[in-house]
Design a protein around this nucleic acid. Structure first.
Lengths: 244, 244
DNA sequence: CGATCGATTGATCAACGTCAATTTCAGTGG
DNA sequence: CCACTGAAATTGACGTTGATCAATCGATCG
């Protein structure tokens, strides 16, 4: 599985439609870590650029964790499948985000391309060797581990103790922080409703209804399925925090 | 907050009742990490032993993360409180478990004593300095971070996509792995039903009913509230994995 | 233009939460 | 030793939320 698309095919697909997600380049969204300061420069010369088409598998949970990746363009979901097909998405990876670095031995989650995607792939054995030589890189990777843990723990509280409306509002706030906020607070969502549902631990219908409620309340606008206008960030934040 | 009990008082309390949890010493349960091999020995001389009484707070989410801890006896819960009092427990810490090591800057979760507890406390600044000197210790702490992430991700899937029965069965299997399995597969649960509920993202009543169902099915026995007999580990494991 | 896929909406149902006893049990005082 | 107390656990009745099932809508693709 996960045969790569030829780059030309990728380009032509991405040219279709008006989906707002840049597949190849585009302005890099805000990073989750505060300042990149390029502690990753030791990796510069050992990466291979690859492309994956929409819904292609990058790696599967349980595979030997041989490679680590950086997203250059597009969006990736990090998810776990249960035997009967239930799915939980742990994270969405955006341009600049690293994944596959913190897995130990085998991948704990699968990685799948949400849109067409461009990644840089590193051999983990090389990354580890470089980490021993460059303290900056090692620190950066430890930082990444901290960040992942923090993200997972926030997610945990959301799934365990937040209502549907709170989860939806939290999700939109997260996306607003991670993506460029275009003029008027418009965010571009690369993922479909099912992906949002699998991230929030809900069904697709419940996600639709939650979005509908926020729209009817005037908190958000929904110009199309892949864009959301944040009309009232204060109110959205209030809902996310559990007020009301 | 979190005034410590005098040791003599702790001892006298622990002597009361037949609750099976050793407060001071007792055989160390299975560790989560495969082999301790004592990469922690650099910490041997910098720790202070402290005790906390049942329900005392060890630290609060948001506090400056000045100290790190190791559980010597008793059990600790790692939890987050929402503004309106909802609570999510991220983890239970048992003798031998470390906590407060992976928090960055401030504690992300509060730590509270479930039973009377004995811990060793380390100054994080010292731990970090020692980590720079001893590669073994640094590796061990990075390993700990990996382990925490893995635990959080498993928990994530549980909260997002497992049914009540599956969560309950998974929880019991986890406890069986982490605690000594006494003769006949009896496990001692240091925490009460409300703690289990807050760990599983449920209410206390739902936890009771789930335990009742497993009992009626003959999968487990409940000699008293703090002990569970695993009559049929196969069946329990099957339920945990989502079969049926 | 029809086919297909994803999103949305509506009707209904079941699971889980809420509220309200009741039971159990550890600890207390007579 | 035994009744009393209070906290925790359990059980039952009922309500709400979110899941399920079933159309329908809308956009993209061939």
């Amino acid at each position: 599985m996960a045969a790569n698309l030829a780059r030309s095919e990728l380009m032509s697909r991405s040219a279709l439609g008006r989906q707002a997600w840049p597949v190849i380049a585009g302005g890099a969204p805000l990073r989750r870590e505060p300042a990149p300061r390029d502690e990753l420069h030791p990796l510069q010369n050992i990466g291979t650029t690859l492309t994956f088409g929409r819904n292609e598998t990058i790696f599967v949970q349980g595979d030997e964790a041989k490679y680590a990746y950086k997203v250059v363009g597009g969006a990736v979901r990090h998810c776990k499948l249960l035997a009967d097909g239930r799915r939980q998405i742990a994270d969405f990876l955006m341009p600049g985000d690293l994944f596959g670095f913190v897995d130990f031995g085998t991948y704990a989650f699968s990685a799948e391309a949400i849109t067409n995607v461009v990644v840089v792939r590193y051999l983990r054995s090389q990354v580890e060797r470089l980490g021993d030589e460059h303290n900056g890189l090692r620190r950066k990777l430890t930082m990444l581990l901290h960040e992942r843990l923090s993200v997972a723990q926030t997610h945990l509280v959301m799934l365990g103790r937040q209502t549907v409306k709170e989860r939806m509002a939290s999700f939109l706030m997260q996306m607003a922080e991670r993506c460029d906020l275009a003029d008027g607070g418009r965010i571009d969502l690369p993922m479909g409703r099912q992906d949002i549902a699998d991230y929030l631990g809900l069904t697709i219908e419940t996600v639709c209804r939650a979005i509908g409620e926020l729209k009817r309340a005037g908190t958000i606008g929904v110009p199309n399925t892949h864009q959301i206008d944040l009309h009232d960030i204060e109110a959205l934040s209030a809902v996310a925090e559990g007020e009301i």
